[in-house]
Amino acid sequence: MRLLFIVFALLIPSFAAATLALYTGYYRDRQEIQKHLLETGRALSLVLDRQFGQAEALLWALAASPVLQTNDHAAFDALARRATRLPDAWIVVEELGRQVVNTRLPPGAALPELPVQNHWKGIAPGQVRVSNLFTGLLAK
């Protein structure tokens, strides 16, 4: 009985110390992973902000184009195609009820009629707004 008592007297503190060491290591590793995830999230946020800024600058430059101001949609379509360098990116210009430029389609293709577009609500000329995702007519 004494031998059993001595074994338990030695094992219980050993198990407690091992458990504490494991928990401390787990907690420290978890804190380190959370720190790295936070840094990665911030870095991705900066990259995304930079890409939105580049896209906004491109759109402001295209909006100031004289060919758009004179409603020469074919010339603007060619200009927009040359200016858009990102893969899987396209530019759409809409007027009330219809698209007038869509660089996703081949040049000169028939452009779709548009139903009521809710993504235009509340935006004024000269204002930039990043909207929520919506299903496009052609891109789906």
Rank of each mutant, 00 (worst) to 15 (best):
V93F: 00
D77P: 02
N102M: 01
R85M: 14
P87D: 09
D88E: 15
V93P: 01
G108H: 08
R104C: 00
R82K: 15
V93R: 01
K121M: 12
K121F: 09
P115R: 07
N118H: 12
E95G: 04
P107C: 07
D88W: 14
F76C: 00
A74C: 03
A74F: 05
E113H: 03
D77L: 02
F76I: 08
E94V: 11
A110E: 11
P87M: 07
L79M: 14
D88Y: 15
I91N: 07
Q117N: 10
I91D: 11
D77Y: 03
T84P: 14
A109P: 03
N118C: 03
H73S: 05
V92C: 06
E94W: 08
T103W: 06
D72K: 01
L96T: 11
A75S: 13
F76M: 12
L111M: 07
T103C: 09
E94Y: 10
L86A: 15
A109K: 05
V93S: 02
V93K: 00
D72R: 02
V93G: 00
R85K: 15
V92L: 11
T103K: 06
P107T: 05
P107N: 06
A83Q: 15
A89R: 11
P87G: 06
A74W: 01
R81G: 10
T70N: 05
P112H: 07
T84N: 15
P115H: 06
L96A: 10
V116M: 13
Q117P: 02
F76E: 02
G122C: 13
D77H: 07
R85Y: 14
H119N: 12
L105D: 07
K121T: 13
H119R: 12
A80V: 13
Q117L: 10
A74T: 08
P115I: 02
A83S: 15
P107G: 05
D77F: 04
D72M: 02
T103A: 09
L96F: 06
P115A: 08
R81Y: 08
L68A: 10
W90P: 01
E113Y: 00
A109N: 03
P87F: 04
L68H: 08
V101T: 11
Q117F: 01
T84F: 14
N71C: 01
P112K: 07
N102S: 04
